[in-house]
Write a protein that binds this DNA or RNA. Sequence first.
DNA 1: AGATGGATTTTC
DNA 2: AAAATCCATCTC
Length: 201
Amino acid sequence: MKLSREFYNRPALEVATDLLGKVLVRRFERRILSGTIVETEAYVGPHDLACHASKGRTPRTEVMFGPPGFSYVYQVYGFHFCFNVVTEPEGYPAAVLIRALEPLEGTHRMRQFRGGERRDTDLTSGPGKLCQALAIDKRLNGEDLLENRLWIEDRRFSSGPIAATARVGINYAGKYADKPWRFFVQGNPHVSRTRTLATGH
DNA sequence: AGATGGATTTTC
DNA sequence: AAAATCCATCTC
């Protein structure tokens, strides 16, 4: 059921698209929290200026240089956490950011972690939101995704049509800012709203 | 609907 | 100082 080390030991672009429809599972205080992955972004390597590892090896980016199938959790804007899976062989830094889930199990608990009344589509529809909902923080940085606190399963769900757009929030990345390396399940209501999409029509 | 600012860590 | 974000709180 759990995705194998070999699944992650591939280029980030392949892993990013293959992760759509897979199920992210978090075991926390003996409960299961899970959701189907509906949105990802690929950070393909040291030459990708949007990839944190393009700045070199630092304490923060260390796990990205390690073996595949481990988690890379970092804090953005001092506040929210983002969860990534490390891809490619040891020594080659690349990762896939998990940006949105469709809640599956433990939605009551997720709603508690998110604070207050929230619609299902507001539970895990963004990288910071899903970390809050699944109790993922920096303590899970470097976690082996083949262990039993946090992992990804194949439940043989079909993801539906996949769309690709430019990644979000990386305008500084020069020619890499326009690469269509954000993938999502088209029409799924749990996909995150970007600023431009939020304007509707 | 759209813009703005606040929270605050990591890095340069 | 700027960032792989989210939310409350204004505006129109």
